[in-house]
Write a protein that binds this DNA or RNA. Sequence first.
DNA 1: AAATAGATTTAGGCAACCCTAATTCTGGTC
DNA 2: GACCAGAATTAGGGTTGCCTAAATCTATTT
Lengths: 226, 226
Amino acid sequence: MAPPTQPLTRSVEDYLKAIYQLSQGGSPAGTTEIANLLELAPASVTGMVKRLSEQGLLEHVPYKGVELTSAGRRAALKMVRRHRILESYLVAFLDYTWDTVHEEADRLEHAVSDRLIERMALALGNPSVDPHGDPIPAPDGSMVELVYTPLSEVPVGESVELRRVETRQADRLRYFAEHGLVPGASVTVTARQPFGGPTTVQTGDGDRLLGAELAGILLCARAGAR
Amino acid sequence: MAPPTQPLTRSVEDYLKAIYQLSQGGSPAGTTEIANLLELAPASVTGMVKRLSEQGLLEHVPYKGVELTSAGRRAALKMVRRHRILESYLVAFLDYTWDTVHEEADRLEHAVSDRLIERMALALGNPSVDPHGDPIPAPDGSMVELVYTPLSEVPVGESVELRRVETRQADRLRYFAEHGLVPGASVTVTARQPFGGPTTVQTGDGDRLLGAELAGILLCARAGAR
DNA sequence: AAATAGATTTAGGCAACCCTAATTCTGGTC
DNA sequence: GACCAGAATTAGGGTTGCCTAAATCTATTT
Ligand SMILES: [Mn+2]
Ligand SMILES: [Mn+2]
Ligand SMILES: [Mn+2]
Ligand SMILES: [Mn+2]
């Protein structure tokens, strides 16, 4: 622990965000996983992990993996809030589209002040989700993460509401937007081929065939879910 | 010269902006001047100046001073545009005041994309000056710099329009704003004490006595000036 | 139990930036 | 023309954060 926490660097903030993301699945984040996500060499990650552990932001069990400490998680969630508020603001007020906004937010998140983020949040009416349907942590770090069902697992015949799109790949996002597959849209699953085959859905603007990859990325609220 | 110019770092951008500012007076910027403005040790500046000269951004005559090359000036003006558009946007849309906006813009200017700046400029209606009355360079780097008269030099009896406030000190800026001394305001000089004494002005909300420092900072358009 | 693939760490470097202390230069002054 | 103060540079370090290549560890397979 280093009590008089000095401001985190851009690199450190990106590491913490990445580790937060990778730890979502319950198990600790591996060195190579982190390296892949941040596009760095694994050896570089080992070095940074050592430093962050000494600063009390991570718990590192050599050869096993890393987890965030509560201080680390707090910092990570702050970055997640910044990122998602920024995305929301840029889309709402500056004409960004959901396929171009991630990149801009990924740089700005390190440069904005708390004050600016809160002003943007206020201008947006304190939204609870960003343009991709990702939940936005509150300023105190609390976040309500709802459990959704991938469209690929919605039974044939059911009608669901799209709530969240789990990808950053611009081409996928553009494809979805072009066909009205955005958070809030209602779709009905009319067929599904077996063995990882495509799902057929009926949307506001016609029927569409979605391969397993795309259908797995679209998260839906089933009947009765909130 | 290094042809395939890679992105400039935050430090480099700040150096170029500082050198641009210091070269405004015609003579080259000195090492110590730059160091003072950036709050660095002079030795650090010597090192950076060497690197930037090698990159073709500066012309350095050892022991004499540095000047921007055209590539350096281009980069500096880009930062000035970014800074001033950001200030304008934050004041216009996010409730910033002119005494708090500089700090935020000084960090953001390094993180925003060209696209974002142009979107903000569009939302603002492509302004030609920022909240302090500082001129905003066009995207191509051209800038119209008008010549104003410091209030301290406006003859007694004349009426002028405030156009620009030349300080970043928040306390001064707050004082001016409190008393309506902002760009666009009309004031009449009703008296001036000799030997660097105060100037008395008549403003929309009453008479006011301004010491030489403050009166020197308020730049005005005299009758007939544009 | 030995071999091995893959993950991880260690070793050794490098570039960008910053600092302090010591040295050198420059433009006057006496 | 020698001297001096201040400006600038050089010398020598330190930190952060990244890389490649060479160990080393772990888990799984044979
Ligand atoms: Mn980022
Ligand atoms: Mn998002
Ligand atoms: Mn800056
Ligand atoms: Mn300004």
